[in-house]
Design a protein around this nucleic acid. Structure first.
Lengths: 150, 150
DNA sequence: TAGCATTGCTTGCAAATTGCAAGCTATTTA
DNA sequence: TAAATAGCTTGCAATTTGCAAGCAATGCTA
């Protein structure tokens, strides 16, 4: 794929360069649901096999998934989230929350998660680590930007 | 584009269907930075004009941006984030945070944001609205799923 | 008020990507 | 030893992308 023009040096762009594709987060969703095998990804997503193998390769190359042969059965490979991959959970949750709110219709959210550590339904909020308030785009300004040449 | 097969009814998939594209979040990033005009999006992103107009159309159709003619200058149109669009800020921040952590290299994050309401640098965390703890994927389970036929 | 500039597109075309179906290889099971 | 399974690869048609050129509507300038 053609690289994104680097008009702004930006972590959003860098992330999107790897993750900005219609299949990546669906594969990751399945991984977060515990799916580990090629077959299972394929069956759960209905994705073409060539696309799936390409995306898995990409995720492995980028250190998001780890591919390990099953010692019990040499035909099988397990795709497991790395720490870097696990750290994509907030993005996945953010997609889910937005979809729950804006795309659910009358029936409400199709899936409700549970926060095991507190026992309540999971209600994710993006908040500020310092003041603990929920973050609103209107409360955010640019602090420092390292590349003022733009 | 071919619709995502609906093997699971899922808000992640519904969101991705609209947002899962390499340009969408870059356009949104610009919008969050205050960009409103076609020209500016084009110049800041280096995106082909046909692609840009297609994506803007898509965002408008999905109620994420609003397109309004400038009353001062009939040639100009302002693309403004709707409430639904503003609500995509957490996802954008989540992409940024992940990129800051995993793709920054030695130099550190290219951009530091400031939380105007508390005066500190913005450190976004995905936390549980009930217990206020930072959410880890390993602490989450499936609560209710409405479509057990899968 | 005629001509030029600006804004926001559209069109045409080559190249890349996607999705489907078939096939292939290495293991494992019967 | 043959059949089944897992994880792919390949070939091909259709769709999407990116580039460049062009165009219409509005505004500005002499």
């Amino acid at each position: 794929m053609k690289p994104i023009p680097k008009k702004r040096v930006c972590s959003v762009a860098r992330s999107i360069e790897i993750l900005g594709d219609r299949w990546i987060f669906l594969i990751l969703r399945e991984a977060f649901f515990g799916v580990r095998q090629y077959d299972q990804f394929q069956a759960n997503l209905g994705i073409a096999t060539n696309i799936l193998s390409h995306r898995l390769k990409l995720l492995v190359e980028n250190g998001i998934l780890e591919r390990k042969q099953d010692p019990q059965d040499g035909r099988r490979f397990r795709y497991k989230l790395t720490e870097k991959g696990m750290d994509l959970y907030p993005i996945t949750l953010a997609f889910m929350k937005w979809g729950d709110r804006w795309l659910s219709g009358q029936e409400g959210p199709p899936l409700i998660l549970k926060h095991k550590s507190c026992g309540r339904p999971l209600a994710p909020e993006m908040c500020c680590a310092y003041c603990r308030q929920v973050i609103d785009a209107r409360d955010v300004a640019i602090g420092e930007y390292k590349f003022e040449n733009v």
